[in-house]
Amino acid sequence: MSWRVPLSKGKHITIISAYASTLAAVDCVKEQFYNSLNECLQAIHRTDRVLLMGDFNSDRKEFLVTKAMRGADCWTDHRLLRCKIRLEIRPQQRRALHTKKLNITSLGDPEVCTQFRSNVAESYMQHDQGPDLGTKWAHLHSDLNKYAVDTRIQAKTPSRLGGDAGISIQHRLDGSLFNTRRLHARTKVSSTQVIELQYADNYAIVVHDAEDLQNILDVFSSTYAAMGLRVNTLKREILVQTVHPPKTHHLFLVNGEPVKTIEHFTYLGIVVHSDCSVDLDIQRRINLAFTAFGRLRGRVFSNNNLRIDTEASVYKAVCISTLLYGSEIWTMYRRQIRILENIHTRCLQRKLGLS
């Protein structure tokens, strides 16, 4: 008798209960027993743990203590083996029931509500004469789901934004975040459609096409209007970011009012420019770093009571972090790198009192 039991981490163990022939049995019986046992062992998967009653063949991790005990009869090759085994039996997985949620808000429409009520009442009258209560409920439950689909109660309102709206971001979560070559793999790479970026009270919409942006603006404004809100176009700005200047300029409207198109704006402390350059952002970080250095010069960098390593730690924590804020997304040229290196050298010269 054999039994294959699933273990944890995708492993299995095959338990075989075999009763060997006695020493007094004829040779043909013994040969038949060992042939049957060999066939059973050959049929076991090669990655399975094997537990053979009377013999053991497994990893030392599962078998903790094993003892061989001799019986009272000396002239015998039988031994009683006792062992302690540590096995993790995998629990039986239950299949999750995927049920669609009912969009009961559509019942607020009097026409839909009246149609659904009439269908349910008709179904109840048809199955009222059923043999038992279980059969009645089974028919009624089936009809309820059917009428829910027919009256558009179960169908959620489809998204008007479209499945390809926004921008597509490819990513993988198995390490090496900045190794872009790993994103060309055919496996383990996920793609996410991003339409909106939210941070505190900042809100940004990102798309590739002008028509998609206008569609998203219309959907958002109509959604806000349904909740009694109105989009303030004076606080909304649109940035068209492209390497080459666009041939035509699009006019974007919100509630019939035009939205201002700008050349650059600051988002989360980073200056985003329409020509995809980082010159303006680098110049802004340089000005902020010089300002921070000037505020600390008299109290820290010109203070003779502080050690050099203390001044260096303050310089790294305040000035360098301010200068390189957001540099992870910069695509710089050599001239821009030289500018940052010159700024760093000038700050060190002033800190050390060198001309």
Rank of each mutant, 00 (worst) to 15 (best):
M1C: 04
W3R: 15
K9G: 04
K9T: 09
G10F: 01
K11G: 00
I15R: 01
I16Q: 05
I16D: 05
A25M: 13
K30R: 13
F33A: 12
S36D: 14
L37W: 05
C40F: 04
R49Y: 05
L52C: 07
L52T: 05
L52N: 04
D55E: 12
N57F: 07
R60K: 14
T66E: 10
R70M: 12
A72Y: 01
C74D: 04
T76C: 10
T76M: 09
T76V: 11
R79T: 10
L80E: 01
R82Q: 02
K84W: 04
H98M: 10
K101N: 01
K101R: 09
L102S: 09
N103C: 09
L107Y: 06
D109C: 09
F116D: 03
N119V: 14
N119H: 09
E122R: 15
S123L: 15
S123Y: 07
Q126P: 00
H127E: 07
T135C: 12
W137I: 13
Y147L: 10
Y147C: 06
V149F: 07
T151I: 07
A155Q: 11
T157G: 10
S159A: 09
D164Y: 10
A165K: 08
A165N: 08
S168C: 15
D174Y: 03
G175W: 02
T180N: 10
T180L: 14
L183P: 06
H184L: 11
H184N: 08
T187R: 15
K188W: 07
S191Y: 05
T192W: 11
Q193W: 11
V194R: 13
E196A: 15
A200P: 00
A204I: 10
V206R: 05
H208V: 11
A210S: 05
Q214P: 02
Y224H: 03
A226C: 03
G228W: 06
V231K: 03
V231A: 04
V231L: 06
I238A: 04
V243Y: 08
L251D: 10
F252E: 03
V259N: 01
I262T: 14
E263C: 04
Y267G: 13
Y267E: 06
G269D: 05
C276T: 15
D279P: 01
L280S: 15
I282F: 02
I282W: 02
R285W: 00
N287T: 12
F290R: 15
A292F: 03
A292H: 07
R295W: 00
V314Y: 02
V318A: 04
C319V: 08
C319D: 01
I320D: 03
I320G: 00
L323R: 01
G326S: 05
T331P: 14
R334W: 00
Q336H: 12
L340R: 06
I343S: 08
C347Y: 08
S355D: 08
